[in-house]
């Protein structure tokens, strides 16, 4: 069980770092505070570029792996 736990921890650390990096590489959406709490009507501009879409896919995959590892770690902690 120890090996599984260590492996999962390593993956979690790597994916966490990767996830933060990927998210920071995205182009930001929305426009600050007044946008958040009902300022003017924000206009969304068309579709996103191919690069952004690939980045999205990568983020989803990394996010899934990250979430699964955390669930796995929880299970290991619960049943060991």
């Amino acid at each position: 069980m120890d090996i599984v736990q260590i492996a999962l921890q390593v993956i979690v650390v790597v994916t966490s770092l990767f996830l933060v990096l990927l998210i920071l590489m995205h182009k930001g959406q929305g426009g600050g505070l007044s946008d958040m709490f009902g300022g003017g009507v924000s206009s969304s501009l068309g579709g996103s570029s191919v690069a952004q879409r690939n980045l999205d896919r990568l983020t989803i995959v990394v996010g899934l792996v990250w979430a699964l590892c955390i669930v796995g770690l929880g299970l290991v902690a619960r049943f060991s």
């Binding site: 979690v12 994916t15 996830l19 933060v20 998210i23 995205h26």
Partner: peptide, 20 residues
């Protein structure tokens, strides 16, 4: 600390996806 930071980043990204 790393997991919590990544979680916050993920929330931010989820929010942006909804906006988009």
């Amino acid at each position: 600390v790393l997991v919590l930071t990544a979680g916050t980043g993920l929330i931010m990204w989820l929010g942006e996806q909804v906006t988009e």
